[in-house]
């Protein structure tokens, strides 16, 4: 695999590459096969570390669980030292998911319906059914502190929290995510979903950039208390 470089899969490739056989894992693509659908990425990145990190994940994480996310996100992020500008291009995540690490997508999310799995290879964004690899990289980017991926791991270990937080604006603010993780780490933490919704409602009156983790924990505690 050495010599494999980052590329971007063009949007129109979707009809050609996301065949049922591919989505179900019955076939894979050589980089050469995909070349006709690829453009150069903004950055030239050697994918050897990425491939190695994916192999580690496949070897050690139990399939179909949030543990895959928690393990994979920091590894993927470290292995892909790309700028946010580059990472904002859905094409590279499509390339990585379809051409380089389709196994990781299916390892994390066993194929149930073709439509949903297609989204996991293709759709940009932070939904749980968006491009699996791009989503994990972005969550790591938004939650890391330098080279410390502690928060990344914590938030991803709770699949539910990650699913709810990162599709909202509040998920784009590291202190808010940190507050949530700290609050829900408590043994007596209430159900996640209603509290995320309540918090987002309260946050509508706030400058999100002014919220620190302590304040978030305080608000969550108030809401949890009020809701009881």
């Amino acid at each position: 695999m050495s010599g494999l470089r980052l590329a971007r899969l063009v949007p129109e490739a979707r009809a050609f590459v996301l065949t049922p056989e591919f989505v179900r894992g019955e076939r894979a693509y050589d980089p050469d096969e995909l070349a006709q659908w690829c453009d150069d990425a903004d950055e030239d990145v050697d994918l050897e570390p990425f491939v190695a990190s994916v192999e580690e994940v496949l070897a050690s994480a139990e399939p179909g669980t949030a543990k895959v996310d928690a393990l994979a996100a920091p590894k993927i992020h470290r292995a892909l030292p790309i700028s946010r500008r580059t990472a904002a291009d859905p094409g590279i995540w499509r390339f990585l998911a379809v051409g380089v690490a389709p196994g990781l997508v299916r390892h994390r999310w066993p194929v149930r319906t073709l439509a949903t799995t297609r989204r996991r290879f293709w759709a940009p964004g932070m939904r749980h059914d968006s491009n699996t690899i791009g989503r994990l990289w972005w969550i790591a980017e938004l939650t890391r502190n330098g080279d410390d991926y502690g928060l990344t791991r914590s938030v991803l270990e709770s699949s539910n929290l990650a699913t709810l937080l990162f599709v909202r604006r509040i998920g784009h603010h590291r202190p808010i995510v940190a507050g949530f993780v700290r609050f829900f780490a408590r043994a007596d933490a209430p159900a996640v979903e209603p509290l995320v919704a309540r918090f987002s409602a309260v946050a509508s009156t706030c400058a999100l950039d002014a919220l620190d983790a302590d304040t978030v924990v305080a608000i969550l505690s108030d809401l949890a208390f009020a809701g009881r």
Binding site: P11, E12, R14, R118, W122, A123
Partner: peptide, 13 residues
């Protein structure tokens, strides 16, 4: 022909 519209830009092949 085939329309692929569940993507950033719909394309008619």
């Amino acid at each position: 022909y085939r329309l692929d519209c569940e993507t950033d830009t719909p394309i008619l092949f």
